[in-house]
Design a protein around this nucleic acid. Structure first.
Length: 417
RNA sequence: GCGGGUAUAGCUUAGUGGUUAAAGCGCCUCGCUGUGGCCGAGGAGAUCGUGGGUUCAAGUCCCAUUAUCCGCCCCA
């Protein structure tokens, strides 16, 4: 076998593709019910877009982007996340005015150059929601409620971890307090750990290392640093989540990997992806992102939902998506009946049924066998007898019940069964 | 980017350095001349991930490489 899919990428084969279609349908319908419009943005963008939004020091921008110069010396990158391109499109095309609320959703591949593992790929996909232009806690609540509802509709009962990081100034003060607190512990640590802590002190909070966890146990809480407005926003959000009966927990230790978040951050985690990949989705408020990209001050909130991880959890929980339906296999029992069965298949398809026919002149026996394998609900059979009588046999594969009906009545009969 | 495990038929796997690499599932044909699933018989399908090396002899031992899984980092 000479070629294989590049490291960290996967082919989605027909059996799985139907599961993808299923969750895509669920998501698109949900987004539609809340009045969100779909945006489809390019696979790559100017590198600078991601540097500006995710933060120069973020892991993603630092080492995980697929960046390249094109033949016109443009510095481009495959998108490593979905929010920045969606917001770029929002601004470029003037999808909203200041003071207006614009609701967008997307389904997109994204790319990160990192070591693949379970639930972690170099090309993965996410569903995203962006609610642009509202500062209200109600906006945060809508996004979170929709996220939980999506999981609920595919059979997953999810609990949301929410936190508030406050405004940029709050975070700067908190960061300092955290470093002060951690100083005695960090003194004895390796250079690598100290460098990481200095780069992003908040990271220490969501460490999985038991030693770090216990060292940080008494750390100051960001919630105690919030300004009045942030505090009020957060409290109001929690009330709204209760009102919506969204299962949630306040998790003061959650931070997010991207720099653009302000105030609300949230994520849903699972222990079904192995010990180190636990985020099923992540989101939050990004009040400065639009203005960072040159737009007017536009408070916004959004979420990114990992599709691969969603599908992994679904199958670990035994939540199988329905099989691709096949209404019928159209079978010719004899050579002479083949033109007739092709015509019948056409008529059935015009009437909206899914129908497969044999192309290779196989025996009745093997065509029936195939019908069984394909999971066809019924076999529609024409042989010499039916041909001369102007009839067709309709056989229900599950029960073996078989009836003969005239060709004129076929569609009517199929609709009735 | 660092550490560890794994790689044999389409799939899941067995295989003390020694003939022609084995099984289950799946696939094809037949028993059953126009009726699937169950059963039975037969058949196709593998240069043992790739490239080197050690050896009289390598699927088996060694090295490298690629992929994958697990842990760290980070994240969806």
């Amino acid at each position: 076998m000479k070629f294989q899919a590049p490291r960290g990428t996967h082919d989605v084969l027909p059996a799985d593709a139907y599961r993808w279609q299923h969750v895509h349908r669920v998501f698109a319908e949900l987004a539609g019910q809340f009045g969100y419009g779909e945006v489809r943005t390019p696979a790559f963008e100017e590198t600078e877009l991601f540097v500006r939004t995710s933060g120069e020091t973020s892991e993603v921008v630092n080492k995980q982007m697929y960046s390249f110069l094109d033949k016109g010396d443009r510095n481009l990158s495959l998108k490593p996340e979905g929010t920045a391109p969606a917001v770029r499109a929002y601004l470029e095309h003037g999808l909203g005015q200041p003071g207006q609320t614009t609701r967008l959703w997307y389904f997109t591949p994204f790319f990160r150059y990192e070591r693949p593992g379970k639930g972690r790929y170099r090309q993965a996909h996410q569903f995203g929601l962006e609610l642009v232009g509202s500062a209200a806690p109600e906006a945060d609540a809508e996004i979170i409620e929709m996220t939980v509802e999506l999981y609920r509709r595919v059979g997953i009962e999810a609990r949301v971890n929410v936190n508030s990081l406050g405004r940029a100034e709050t975070r700067a003060r908190y960061r300092e307090a955290l470093l002060n607190y951690a100083e005695p512990y960090l003194r004895d640590q390796s250079d690598e750990i100290r460098a990481r802590a200095a780069l992003n002190p908040l990271r220490m909070l969501d460490s999985k290392d038991p030693e770090v966890i216990s060292a940080m146990a008494g750390a100051p809480k960001v919630l105690d640093f919030l300004e009045e407005a942030s505090k009020g926003h957060f409290d109001r959000l929690l009330c709204l989540l209760e009102e919506a009966q969204v299962p949630f927990e306040v998790a003061p230790n959650i931070v997010r990997g991207l720099d653009y978040y302000t105030d609300t951050v949230f994520e849903i985690t699972t222990d079904l992806l192995g010990s180190s990949n636990d985020a099923l989705c992540g989101g939050g408020r990004y009040d400065n992102l639009v203005s960072d990209l040159g737009g007017p001050p536009t408070p916004s909130v959004g979420v990114g939902i990992g599709v691969e991880r969603l599908l992994i959890v679904m199958s670990e929980l035994g939540l199988e998506s329905p099989l691709a339906p096949l209404d019928a296999m159209a079978i010719s029992a004899t050579e002479a009946a083949r033109p007739a069965i092709r015509q019948i298949a056409r008529e059935m398809r015009s009437a909206g049924f899914s129908v497969v026919t044999d192309l290779d002149g196989r025996s009745l026996r093997s065509q029936l066998k195939r019908a069984d394998q394909l999971g066809a609900v019924r076999a529609v059979i024409v042989g010499d007898e039916e041909l001369t009588a102007g009839e067709v046999s309709v056989r229900l594969l599950a029960s073996g019940d078989q009836v003969r009906v005239s060709r004129e009545r076929l569609i009517e009969v199929l609709r009735g069964v």
